[in-house]
């Protein structure tokens, strides 16, 4: 894969095939942790960190451990364990060596193990037969797309606090409607074929 291919892959993962608005991976944190822009940014950064590293780790586990032994069917089990262990390791590492970063990302890290965006990026990289560099680039840029979506959406939700929807729509339903309108805006990118 040449450099331009990787750039195109990243562009497409961020905007055209946005994890939230086109693929629905990682909707739980997207709807749950998007009340304020700064917490949304913290979550986005933590996800970016984990997804880039897990993209590399799961690729290596699949190609050096599962494939040589013909254990490809165990990839779901293996990947979720790798991700859980990686999250735990990142948490311990940050707490010990970069306390400032731990203070800002720490509370989001445990949530990431069960974030389907991380697992789906790992599975998609295998399914699309990416090489190591594009697997890492794919994980990183998909997470950037996730961050973009969650931060923009947090901004929208901030405005929504001043709105007065009908009683039945209060809370979760109006949040989903707002996400739907934002998804329509992102659908504009889907016309771009790369």
């Amino acid at each position: 894969m040449s450099f331009t291919d990787i750039l195109l892959l990243m562009f497409s993962a961020i905007l055209v095939e946005n994890f939230i608005f086109a693929k629905f991976y990682g909707c739980c944190p997207f709807l749950g942790v998007s009340e304020k822009p700064d917490t949304a940014l913290g979550m986005g950064m933590a996800v970016t960190f984990v997804m880039t590293l897990s993209g590399a780790a799961t690729w290596a586990v699949y190609h050096f451990l599962l494939e040589p032994f013909g254990l490809e069917y165990l990839k779901t089990v293996a990947f979720i364990l790798v991700i859980a262990a990686l999250v735990q390791f990142i948490e311990m590492f940050l707490r010990k060596f970069i306390p400032a970063l731990y203070a800002s990302l720490g509370i989001y890290l445990p949530l990431i193990t069960t974030n389907c965006a991380v697992l789906s990026a790992a599975l998609l990289a295998i399914q699309n037969e990416y090489n190591f560099i594009s697997a890492v680039a794919f994980g990183f840029s998909s997470a950037l797309g996730f961050t973009l979506a969650i931060v923009v959406f947090a901004g929208v939700r901030g405005k929504m606090e001043f709105a007065d929807p009908p009683r039945a729509f209060k809370g979760f339903p109006i949040t989903l409607i707002a996400a739907g309108l934002l998804a329509m805006a992102f659908a504009g990118f889907s016309g771009i074929k790369l």
Binding site: F21, A22, K23, F24, P166, R167, A168, F169, K170, G171, F172, P173, I174, T175, L176, I177, A179, G180, L181, A183, M184, F186, A187
Partner: peptide, 24 residues
């Protein structure tokens, strides 16, 4: 629109609103 991704959010929002209406 309803089978596109945006439609998923809109439909689910309306369905949950209907459920909330009944519960209210």
């Amino acid at each position: 629109l309803l089978v596109m991704p945006a439609g998923a959010f809109l439909t689910l929002g309306c369905v949950i609103a209907a459920v909330q209406k009944i519960r209210n």
